[in-house]
Design a protein around this nucleic acid. Structure first.
Lengths: 236, 236
DNA sequence: TCACGTTCTTGATCTGCATCAAGACTCTCG
DNA sequence: CGAGAGTCTTGATGCAGATCAAGAACGTGA
């Protein structure tokens, strides 16, 4: 575990839309109060229900956001660098609604929530950037809600693969970036059912070899999946 | 259909947290560009996928936000006075992710999105109020996601009834405020299954007479439902 | 390289819930 | 008030997906 924060990270953080227009002295002040830590895999960073002491920025690695209730657990989202997570709880000084766990060795910058809120109170550019960030987050979760309610698990997998393919450069062969059981949980199904669902997409040209996915005929898969930007485009 | 806007509505709108701290001349300017319309029941106000021309404020009545995909439709939320809906799309100048339909005769104030965005750009208090609103909206949808993924439909109904009871003043007898088929859709189930689920809650003291719900033993129901503020408290 | 632990796949079975159908009930309008 | 349309309930059946179990496959560490 490393404590300390080097100025070499500043440009990457500054380039995030959330911080890009913030007044320079506000940004400096925020960075002065920041910590950086490197965590090994499978470490719980925050726990659902706890008060929100820090805004987190993932600089490298990846993080699983998950939730629990009555002995059940479900994957809510996966966070990749470079991005923040749990912004709303920070701004509202509220409890975390999700826990976070590292999926692999990860470097995380921790900004004290009090500092973030203080700057939010006085920096209009920052407040506006938070609006944009929260609007995207909100719309993204609405899309997940629609996915869950309007599609079967097979349809959700098909559309997930199309999104992942697009994100992986658009080639006919690409890699799943985390364990299948986590993907199953994210899509709201069991690992057993995920295995079966992959087979269910075989007639649409999808083949699976370990973590490698191949799509034989993208248009055939799209005809089945019926992707909609109102559900599948998480950038707007 | 009425066009025209009377100053008697101003205090109610001004009292909304979204507008309460806005500079007075900005508020006046916004109100000058506003329209008010009264719609009968079952009228589609906005359509999923359309560009977002107005921020809507419901002054009376109620509105169903719903989404469609591949011939399926689902209820996403119900909006009651006095509140805004579809704020994120307004601010982002993006497409609506949901459609909206009046459930009963409703009076709606329409604020041109351009006007809203222009004031957002220059009024720090307004920007901060939008942050608070979006953070609540975001956290609310995360809670819905958790409800859908972590609970069975029976558990979702039980917790919904506990929330509704609390909202209805806490008495042992209270009214459903909209049609059962809509409630079923909101909870992610069919109307048939909702009927059955009400019967399934009979052993926990729940009885149904038309739209009237009675809870015989609230603690017994809570022992079954296991409410969690991290899922069921939509105010934080 | 091998052993062990974990993840994934596959099969069998079960369960929660949807679909279909029809009757009962409620509400609205002339 | 009565008719008709729409909603709700109930029963039967089907289906999507979970659960349980066990073997296969994979990854990691000594």
């Amino acid at each position: 575990m490393h404590i300390g924060f080097s100025e070499s990270d500043y440009p990457d953080i500054r380039a995030l839309p959330l911080f890009a227009e913030m007044a320079p002295d506000h940004f400096q002040s925020l960075m002065r109060g920041a910590y950086v830590q490197t965590f090994p895999p499978h470490i719980e960073l925050i726990t659902e229900g706890d008060p929100c002491d820090f805004l987190h920025i993932i600089m490298s690695g990846s993080v699983d956001l998950f939730a629990s209730w009555n002995g059940h657990e479900t994957c809510m989202a996966t966070v990749r660098p470079i991005s923040t997570f749990i912004l709303a709880a920070t701004i509202k000084d509220a409890q975390y609604l999700m826990s976070a766990r590292t999926l692999e060795k990860s470097r995380i910058v921790l900004l004290p929530s009090q500092d973030v809120r203080a700057i939010f109170d006085v920096d209009h550019h920052f407040a506006r950037a938070i609006v944009n960030e929260l609007a995207i987050c909100y719309r993204s979760v609405v899309k997940v809600q629609k996915d869950l309610k309007l599609r079967t698990s097979l349809e959700r997998l098909a559309n997930y693969l199309l999104r992942l393919q697009a994100r992986s450069g658009g080639g006919m062969k690409f890699e799943l970036s985390f364990e299948k059981r986590r993907l199953a949980s994210y899509l709201g199904m069991t690992p057993e059912n995920l295995s079966r669902a992959f087979k269910g997409l075989r007639p649409y040209g999808v083949t699976v070899d370990g973590n490698t996915i191949s799509i034989g005929d993208i248009e055939d898969l799209k005809r089945f999946a019926r992707p909609s930007p109102l559900i599948d485009d998480h950038s707007t």
